[in-house]
Structures are given as C-alpha cells and as structure tokens.
C-alpha cells in the first residue's frame, strides 16, 4: 500500500479472533469504523495453518495458507489482524511470487494462477498510513494519564527471507503517544509469550510470563498493550503472580481512546479484569 488507505478492505480475522479473542475482533472492527474503513470478512476463510502445520507438515502449511489467498478478491488489499496469521499468509505469498515451483503447485491445486499483486497488510499498516494529527478521535488525547508498556511478543522477528519486507518497530509507541499515553520503554517488549508451549509445558511458560509481568510492574505501568491475541491469552492464563496489571488488545485501547462505542463483551472477557483501572482513570463509567 503506497499512500491512501482504501475505504474497503478484505479482512482475515483468523481462528483466535473468531473465538477466544472475540473482543479483539469486535474492537478492531469498531476502531476501523471510526476511521471510515469498512472491513469485509474473507468469505469462508479457513485456518492459516497456525504453528502446528509448519511444525509437522510443511506441505499442509502451504496448502492451508494458499486456500485463503485463493479466496481473496483481487481488487482490494487483504487485512490481517493476527501477527501469526500475517506471517503465515505473507510468507506463502512471498513464495508464490519468488518460487516458480510453488506457483506451479498452486496453479494445479487451485485451478488458477496466484494473484501476485494481492497486497496482504497487517492492521499496523493502517495506523502507519494514518495522519495521526488529523485522524478521527486522536485530538482528544484519550489516553492521558495512562502509563503503558507496549508488548510486541515475537511479531517483529521474522525469518531471514523476510528481512527486507516492511516492519513496524516503534509503531505502538508512536500511536499510543499521539493519544496522550505515557509510553514506557522496558526490557520485555519483544520477548516471546511461549505460544503452544503454554499448553504443553506450562512449567516452562509460567516463569517466562511472570518475568514479563514483573517487568511491566517494575516499569511502573498501569497496563500492558498486546498486538497479538495469542500473546494476550498466554499472558493472562499463565501469569500466577499476586500482583498483575491488566492487558489490553491494541484494538481495544485504540477504540477506547478515540471514543468508539465500547461494547459490553470486551472487558468482561478478560481474565485480569481491566475495569477497575478504567474506572479509576475515568475512561468508563
């Protein structure tokens, strides 16, 4: 995407946002609406393959990602909300662009040539292109008095073959600051959340997650903001410290800040209830 954000985008929510992190999905759609961007859910989208497909079955990882690419309408960019889905889909697209064998396989499987010009963009890309001084709701400094640590998890780390693709270091800091937040630099913004080891080896993930939460607390943060629904879940379910700060999805805190209509189902679904903090900061009644 070069400059202007199209008013209509295809939208790939992914499994987490469609289920466990529904509040992430709904707040993301709500935020986009405040900015005049309409999201049209990719019809009949399927799982991107997640960590498991590429872990144990390379060909299935390709097929699952490619099915979604084959469904994308050609005339508008495909917006992806989840960093993990984003990596899977954009890596598949990169292979289709650069690897003739992969493209041939795609053509045999889906009965058409891959759409090499299909743009796959992450939610961050929208914010990157916004004029934050003029964007709707940004002048009100809706996050005044909120001390925030941004948490990217592993989303900014990428395989070597994608080193030259766009990346977004500092984006959450820039956007949150423009909304009046006090954004704190801390040691754990790029520490992996543990992904599936949270299920298989909670004994390994709990101390890791506790270290991250401890880091947020010693940075004096009121809350953490995550860009990934899986990070959000792992941090919430595996942290067993007495003292915890609430964790917001980036889309939730954006929606709150710009005055989108906050829906009942968002904050009540958090395992670490953020409502006492929001009341204290007079951000909700």
């Amino acid at each position: 995407m070069n400059n202007a954000i199209p008013a209509t985008l295809s939208y790939f929510p992914g499994c987490s946002l469609a289920t466990t992190a529904r509040e992430n999905n709904s707040s993301l759609v709500a935020f986009c609406r405040t900015q005049g961007i309409e999201l049209i859910e990719l019809e009949d989208w399927s799982c991107c393959g997640s960590s498991s497909a590429h872990s144990i079955n390379r060909d299935m990882a390709c097929s699952l990602a490619e099915r979604n690419l084959s469904l994308a309408p050609p005339d508008r960019p495909l917006l992806v909300a989840c960093p993990s889905c984003m990596l899977r889909l954009s890596q598949a697209q990169l292979h289709l662009k650069t690897d003739a064998e992969a493209a041939g396989r795609y053509e045999r499987m889906w009965g058409k040539a891959p759409n090499r010009s299909l743009e796959i963009i992450h939610f961050f890309e929208l914010l990157e292109h916004m004029d934050l001084e003029r964007a709707a709701g940004f002048s009100g400094e809706g996050l005044r008095n909120m001390r925030i640590v941004p948490y990217y998890g592993c989303m900014l780390s990428r395989p070597p073959e994608m080193r030259r693709e766009k990346n977004y270091h500092g984006l959450m800091e820039k956007v949150l600051t423009s909304l009046g937040a006090d954004v704190v630099q801390w040691a754990y913004s790029n520490r992996c959340c543990g992904t599936f080891l949270s299920v298989v080896r909670p004994d390994v993930v709990t101390p890791m997650v506790n270290e991250i939460m401890d880091g947020a607390i010693s940075a004096g943060a009121d809350c953490m903001v995550t860009a990934c629904a899986m990070c959000h879940m792992n941090l919430e379910i595996r942290c067993n410290l007495q003292q915890k700060v609430p964790i917001f999805h980036f889309s939730e805190i954006l929606s709150l800040a710009v005055g989108a209509k906050v829906q009942n189902g968002w904050f009540s679904r958090h395992l670490i209830d953020p409502r006492p903090l929001l009341r204290k900061k007079q951000m909700i009644a």
Binding site: R58, C154, S157, R158, P160, L197
Partner: peptide, 28 residues
C-alpha cells in the same frame, strides 16, 4: 520439539540462517 519458531534467533543471526525452518525440517 521445544523450539516454537518465534524467530528471535533467526532475526539476529549474522549469517541469516533460518533456524526455525531448520528445526521444522529436523522435526519432520
């Protein structure tokens, strides 16, 4: 088996070795 493919390693590798891809291949 423990490697989750978070790419923290490959992102800093000075020789641009895709370590998670190597782990995937070894696991398979």
């Amino acid at each position: 088996w423990t490697c989750v493919g978070c790419n923290t390693c490959s992102y800093v590798c000075p020789m641009a070795i895709d370590i998670p891809a190597l782990m995937d291949s070894l696991r398979q």
